[in-house]
């Protein structure tokens, strides 16, 4: 892989290595000629938060710097939704380049350089298919560990080309398989970052972005009127001491966890249930919170899922939402 490629994949260790070798230090971020890079970084974040993909592809030195500065600024903005959106946008940007590079490279040696990215970053070994040069193959278990969380039926193993322990994928599909991991990788890079004392230029620009983004992500204080009708219905049933189906309990608990209710308060909500057992309920709520058991934090079921389970009691105020958690979000 040439240094030019690092502009496309600035999250690679090689990019950081290149910056270190070139003798770049944090203090240089305050230099007046960095202003342009800081502005590019701010744009990169804005584009990402808007749900688009940053298209700039300048000299690799500038792109690597822009990426690093944007990471610093996202960290300084310190808003989780901004970080999430930015990380996903960066992942989608890299996905686009990676797909093109995998598709275009006709030389097996060059192709294998790109497949190395998968191995280094995601421990995913990709080989080229013997029978068809357009196809790549990954181990069934590596495939399943990733694809089983995709919802589309076409990603189910039965709808894939499977033979002797491998799943055969084209370039687009191969890259799609790691999109979430790319996003997590960038997310983690920012989370793990310890911020140095920032030059005023970066700090001020980050402050400005924060002031602009913050109101979008403020939630109203939770009151009974702000609860989505599905959750309200579940609470009503619970209040009457009637039996609430398992799926409705799951929705109620995951919703309350997502809006930040403490576990104790959530457990107390279930005390009217005819089969209430505090120990079991606590374990189940903690399990959903990712504190116990599988350590997976469960998300609130989507509106579509709730509709399928007859747990949806939509009102006009539900218009445009796809998950109960979006209900009552106030956009200023």
């Amino acid at each position: 892989m040439g240094t030019g490629d690092l502009a496309k994949y600035p999250f690679l260790n090689e990019a950081g290595e290149y910056m270190r070798k070139s003798g770049f230090g944090w203090d240089e971020l305050g230099r007046p000629d960095m202003k342009d890079v800081i502005e590019r970084a701010a744009q990169r974040i804005e584009v990402g938060v808007a749900g688009d993909v940053y298209a700039g592809l300048d000299k690799y030195e500038i792109e690597i710097l822009t990426f690093i500065v944007s990471l610093i600024m996202v960290k300084a903005i310190a808003l989780e939704p901004v970080l999430k959106k930015y990380a996903l946008a960066e992942a989608r940007r890299a996905e686009k380049f990676l797909t093109d590079d995998l598709r275009k490279q006709s030389e097996p040696l060059k192709r294998s350089l790109f497949t190395k990215i998968f191995e280094d970053l995601f421990s995913l070994k990709i080989e080229m298919a013997e029978s068809d040069t357009r196809l790549f193959k990954v181990k069934v278990t590596d495939y399943l560990a990733r694809s089983s969380h995709f919802h589309e039926q076409e990603w189910k193993l039965i709808n894939r080309l499977v033979s002797h322990g491998f799943v055969y994928l084209d370039a687009d599909e191969t890259v799609r398989l790691v999109r979430n991991e790319l996003s997590i990788l960038i997310h983690e890079k920012v989370r793990a970052m310890a911020l140095p004392t920032l030059p005023t230029t970066i700090r001020d620009r980050a402050e400005e972005l924060r002031a602009r983004f913050a109101p979008r992500y403020e939630y109203r204080v939770l009151s009974a009127n702000d609860l989505p009708p599905c959750v309200k219905h579940a609470l009503d049933v619970m209040d009457k001491g009637e039996n609430l189906p398992h799926s409705a309990r799951l929705m109620l608990a995951t919703y309350m966890l997502a809006v930040g209710k403490p576990v104790d308060e959530i457990v107390a909500m279930f005390q009217n249930a005819p089969d209430f057992n505090e120990k079991i309920t606590r374990y189940q709520v903690e399990h959903l919170a990712g504190i116990k058991g599988s350590r997976t934090k469960y998300s609130v079921p989507s509106c579509e899922k709730l509709r399928n389970e007859n747990l949806c009691f939509a009102t006009q105020e539900c218009a445009g939402i796809v998950n109960p958690i979006q209900f009552g979000r106030k956009r200023k």
Binding site: L144, S147, Q153, E154, K156, L157, I158, N159, V162
Partner: peptide
Amino acid sequence: ARSDLVGYVRGAGLM
């Protein structure tokens, strides 16, 4: 992931 494998060997969900 195991559930996806189960679907595979049972022949369930072929499009």
